[in-house]
Design a protein around this nucleic acid. Structure first.
Lengths: 223, 223
DNA sequence: AATTGTAGTGAGTACTCACTCATTTTTTTA
DNA sequence: TAAAAAAATGAGTGAGTACTCACTACAATT
């Protein structure tokens, strides 16, 4: 087991070390401000060696991108969510949603440093953005839609709003949850995770309004 | 009226033009990859002139930061939300929330380019991050908490969950809403804004679960 | 008209960085 | 073990950068 979770996909050891070092330096300084000499120093190799494995600095970024996509869309990862969905009969949405969210959060934890790098750089590099969209976002959205369709079909989730809205709400809540844990992390401990997740799901499921207020006048269809 | 909404705070015309140009170039390439020569070209001035107004390139970024903070925390902006809250008696949360969100979304629209620059760079510059936290996030959170406390007091919002969770849910939903509109904006038109906002608020208020399902077993307190 | 002050200029400067390549070190092969 | 091949090295290179400064243009003041 190594610190940056680059393991598994049989890369040459040196290439592996370069990617690890690059993830560290890129996430601290950003792609442009990072220097190949600092990456080399962090990887414990000579600067010239970098260019045996990657033609250009930009190529290192692409290496990180490809590697991240491989991890996220790899069989191991995909199958775990499919397993959850397959075994979902009889459980309520709350339980399933918790299992799915927990699974995804663990994944985010494990790839966070590299995901952060490629997401940040996607703001400035069209090719990176496009690759992320095609290989991560789009499939993830599709997968979630399948899950939602099932849940709606079984009457577990409202059918009077667009699935996109449901998706957006789950995504939004999860995103802020992650951002808070990762960017202002000092305060948040792993032990609280379970309780925190319960609260998160509760608010996603039932919203912030009081449960049975008298002053809600109409339930007009908003679709 | 000018394109980048830098107006109002009586800056010298040249300084103004430099900031506008810098916002454009920084948001396209990021701070590090942006060059002072390109900023000068965009501002229609000589490169040397930049350094009459800003000691260093980093100083231009600070200029954008200060300017953004001034706009967001300026009297004009603050007061509009206070007005909404002051006139909130008798209205339901939904209406108030819509007014507040609409007000904030308009604000985000008007400062988006510069906000994007300083948020992105806050990842790499501690001083920028600290200034954003102290001058924007922290006061905004405080203000929202006052609003929530009032709403909870009046029985309009659940009191069985932490206000932080409520805040996070609103923030998260709003963030994804903005991100979708701004980053994949082609699809979204301004006319749909009102309808979209209704849907957004609906899901924030009532969640994604079916309204009155029989299979919800317990309503245990999650606080 | 002469002088002073100010804003603007852009070629020049010192320096940094991605990338190269002649040389050295290590590994493989015979 | 010797020769050949491959891998690794790091000083060197040139393109490009942030920033400087000697100068110009022109307005205000005397």
């Amino acid at each position: 087991m190594d610190t940056q979770n680059l393991s598994g996909l049989d890369l040459p050891e040196k290439e592996h070390k370069i990617l690890e070092a690059a993830i560290k330096v890129f996430s601290e300084k950003g792609f442009s401000a990072a220097t190949t000499s600092e990456i080399a120093k962090n990887a414990g190799i000579a600067e010239g060696t970098i260019f045996r494995y990657f033609k250009t600095k930009k190529d290192i970024l692409r290496g990180i991108l490809v590697h991240t996509i491989n991890i996220i869309s790899g069989k191991l990862v995909l199958s775990s969510i499919e397993k959850i969905l397959a075994a979902s009969d009889g459980k309520d949405v709350r339980t399933i949603l918790k299992e799915v969210l927990y699974d995804r959060l663990k994944l985010v934890d494990s790839v966070f440093p590299m995901a952060r790098v490629i997401l940040t750089e996607s703001l400035f590099h069209d090719d990176v953005r496009e690759a992320i969209y095609q290989n991560i976002i789009s499939p993830a959205v599709e997968m979630f839609k399948v899950f939602l369709a099932k849940a709606i079909e079984r009457g577990m989730i409202r059918d009077d709003i667009d699935p996109e809205i449901v998706l957006r709400s789950i995504m939004g809540n999860a995103a802020v949850f992650i951002a808070q844990r990762k960017l202002f992390s000092d305060k948040f401990l792993m032990e609280d995770m379970d309780k925190e997740l319960d609260k998160l799901i509760d608010v996603i499921m039932y919203g912030i309004a009081v449960k049975n207020p008298d002053y809600i006048k109409s339930d007009k269809d908003l679709t």
